[in-house]
Design a protein around this nucleic acid. Sequence first.
DNA 1: TTGAATAATTAACATTGTTCAGTATATTTG
DNA 2: CAAATATACTGAACAATGTTAATTATTCAA
Lengths: 195, 195
Amino acid sequence: MNRKEIQEERMKNYFIDATKEIITGEGIKALSVRSIAEKAGYSFATLYNYFKDVKDLIFYCVQDFSQECRKYVVSRTENEERGIPKIKKIVKSYVEYMVQYPGIFDLFYVEKIATDGTSLSASDIIVKFIDELCEEELQYCIAQGTFRPGEAIEIMSNIRNSIIGILLLYMNRQHPKSYYDFVVSVNRQLDRILD
Amino acid sequence: MNRKEIQEERMKNYFIDATKEIITGEGIKALSVRSIAEKAGYSFATLYNYFKDVKDLIFYCVQDFSQECRKYVVSRTENEERGIPKIKKIVKSYVEYMVQYPGIFDLFYVEKIATDGTSLSASDIIVKFIDELCEEELQYCIAQGTFRPGEAIEIMSNIRNSIIGILLLYMNRQHPKSYYDFVVSVNRQLDRILD
DNA sequence: TTGAATAATTAACATTGTTCAGTATATTTG
DNA sequence: CAAATATACTGAACAATGTTAATTATTCAA
């Protein structure tokens, strides 16, 4: 029973790790049941013994990726001056991470996901992700009197929506054309919203 | 020569119209080379005599849809009080249209498009679309002294990014859960940005 | 009417996700 | 330890996708 669970967990992780490798490496367009299985060292049919379908598998990766992204953001921001500067830095780090791994951005926001039980929680994780990254610092701002509580919610909504929108246009529609212009644009938006 | 062009144009339109019908009707997931051809009354292979590939065909629809959306927005806003109220109403009408036809939203922002010559102009049309809808009214605001010119650009960027972001989360991630909450959220964002 | 050009279609291919029947492996039981 | 059973794994097969090539049907000029 316990042994079985350990083994099953291990097997799942083989497939999950393979999927993550492909997403971060070749990108989501290179992802297929067969490419995953090959990288994991099993037949594509074996995959279906551990996952309901490929979407089920893929959204195990969402949790892993959000953890990794969180770590990245924390490591990049822990020494930042608290308050608004830190919120800005958190968002910028988050954007950096997403630009670095477009496959993860696709997975989080672009890819269609089934609306059954499991994937609904995946949606929840995704939707609240940026908010959670900023949560602590936003509370700090409220405590400092920088924002009123109600105001903070609206500000966070504005940041979340704007950043997802600007990322979508950059990743999917090549706008702005250059990464430099994109970064400038992100900075301006953050300044406008937060200052 | 001239006759040929007319006929070719007609044939293209049969396929374009079929594609548009499917997108607005059954949605983008029902779209396939075969379903388009069937609705157009031809073989799927015939399609390739008139379009380079299916993406080429699909992005003929982008222009048509943006025109239709523009008409919708204009008809819904022509009697609105000028200035900020009209900008708000334009954006809300635009959002209404996109929610009504999720396939068009997908086409505009979500679907990956090839980055060759033709589709680059499609990207341009898409990216500037909301901005163009508001352009006239934004100029009016500047003329009235409501905004400074530089400020207007930033405001428009914020509106564009936020609206695309909030639409993406609603359409692809069911957030907020209900349409009512979604509308409330849109209104709040617009109030925050414009007031 | 016949010959050449053009248009349209059928057949086929390579991928995709998924299922199922069967085989190999592991575990339990006598 | 050997046999029976349960589990894990696999390849073949299916349906649907976009795309191409070869073939058939049609049109139009000489």
